[in-house]
Simulated assay, not measured.
Amino acid sequence: MTATPRRIAAVALLAAVLGLQLVPAQAAGTGPQDLPEPTGEMLDKSVRAWDPAGSVRIWDLSGSVKDVDEVKTKGKETTISLSTDILFTPDSSTLPDSVSAKVEALVAKVPRGASVKVNGHTDSVKGTIDNKVLSTDRAKAVAAVLKKVRPDLELKVKGLAATEPAVREDADDPSSFAANRRVEIIFAN
């Protein structure tokens, strides 16, 4: 039987796991088949018990996935708030093509011919693009999708930057900044 490089490597690995010292084939006989039969003690030393109690980590994913939208009705007015963190890349106002179907579903209940406000909002952090420009461009992008899926609506588009925060921003809570980055679609019921 000829020893192949793969077989030699396997024998070397087995010997290392079993704590055996290999000697050249010429000195030990004819080859790997001449290795001693491993004892129970050798096998016991080569096996490590796995303790799952200390090595398994459970992750709580509740609250880690956020919907693209939030719909609130107050009195006779409904506000659909779209998270810009999900819709846009940072400092961008380009919407992915997949947004049209979602927006169409969200505005399905808007009355025909309704007057709809599309307001863009940012957080107070200054980025590479002025927040007023960014909020206006994002509102325009959402309005363009609305016009495409609901041409009957009368749209009033405005960029408000950080002038109307949804929540008070807290430097220790990044989600407070994220909550303020949004585009709102507002209409009367």
Results as ranks from 00 to 15, higher is better:
residue 21 Q to H: 15
residue 20 L to S: 00
residue 18 L to H: 01
residue 67 D to M: 07
residue 28 A to E: 01
residue 73 T to M: 09
residue 64 S to L: 12
residue 68 V to T: 08
residue 45 K to F: 09
residue 21 Q to I: 15
residue 33 Q to R: 06
residue 36 P to Q: 10
residue 28 A to C: 05
residue 65 V to F: 05
residue 21 Q to C: 15
residue 75 G to Y: 01
residue 41 E to M: 09
residue 39 T to M: 04
residue 61 L to Q: 04
residue 46 S to W: 11
residue 22 L to Q: 12
residue 39 T to I: 10
residue 34 D to I: 01
residue 37 E to N: 02
residue 37 E to Q: 01
residue 58 I to Y: 08
residue 75 G to I: 01
residue 22 L to G: 10
residue 23 V to N: 10
residue 25 A to Q: 02
residue 62 S to P: 07
residue 48 R to I: 03
residue 28 A to S: 06
residue 19 G to F: 02
residue 75 G to P: 05
residue 63 G to A: 12
residue 61 L to M: 08
residue 72 K to M: 05
residue 43 L to N: 07
residue 29 G to I: 00
residue 19 G to Y: 10
residue 48 R to A: 07
residue 55 S to D: 05
residue 18 L to I: 11
residue 50 W to E: 15
residue 19 G to S: 14
residue 23 V to S: 11
residue 40 G to E: 03
residue 51 D to L: 13
residue 74 K to E: 15
residue 51 D to H: 03
residue 20 L to K: 09
residue 25 A to H: 05
residue 60 D to R: 04
residue 62 S to Y: 10
residue 18 L to K: 03
residue 74 K to N: 14
residue 64 S to Y: 15
residue 18 L to A: 06
residue 65 V to Y: 06
residue 67 D to V: 06
residue 22 L to R: 15
residue 63 G to F: 14
residue 70 E to S: 02
residue 69 D to E: 09
residue 50 W to Y: 15
residue 20 L to Y: 14
residue 60 D to H: 08
residue 70 E to F: 03
residue 21 Q to V: 15
residue 45 K to S: 13
residue 59 W to D: 01
residue 63 G to N: 13
residue 44 D to F: 00
residue 58 I to T: 14
residue 60 D to Y: 08
residue 51 D to N: 08
residue 70 E to C: 02
residue 58 I to L: 09
residue 56 V to W: 15
residue 71 V to F: 09
residue 63 G to D: 12
residue 23 V to I: 06
residue 19 G to K: 08
residue 28 A to P: 02
residue 37 E to W: 05
residue 65 V to D: 15
residue 31 G to T: 01
residue 56 V to D: 12
residue 34 D to R: 05
residue 19 G to R: 14
residue 26 Q to Y: 07
residue 55 S to L: 09
residue 49 A to I: 15
residue 49 A to Y: 12
residue 21 Q to L: 15
residue 57 R to M: 13
residue 67 D to N: 12
residue 26 Q to R: 08
residue 67 D to A: 12
residue 22 L to K: 11
residue 39 T to F: 03
residue 67 D to W: 10
residue 66 K to G: 04
residue 32 P to D: 01
residue 55 S to C: 07
residue 22 L to F: 06
residue 38 P to C: 04
residue 61 L to K: 06
residue 39 T to E: 03
residue 41 E to P: 14
residue 40 G to D: 06
residue 51 D to T: 12
residue 21 Q to S: 14
residue 49 A to R: 14
residue 65 V to H: 08
residue 18 L to Y: 02
residue 40 G to R: 04
residue 73 T to N: 11
residue 55 S to V: 09
residue 50 W to H: 12
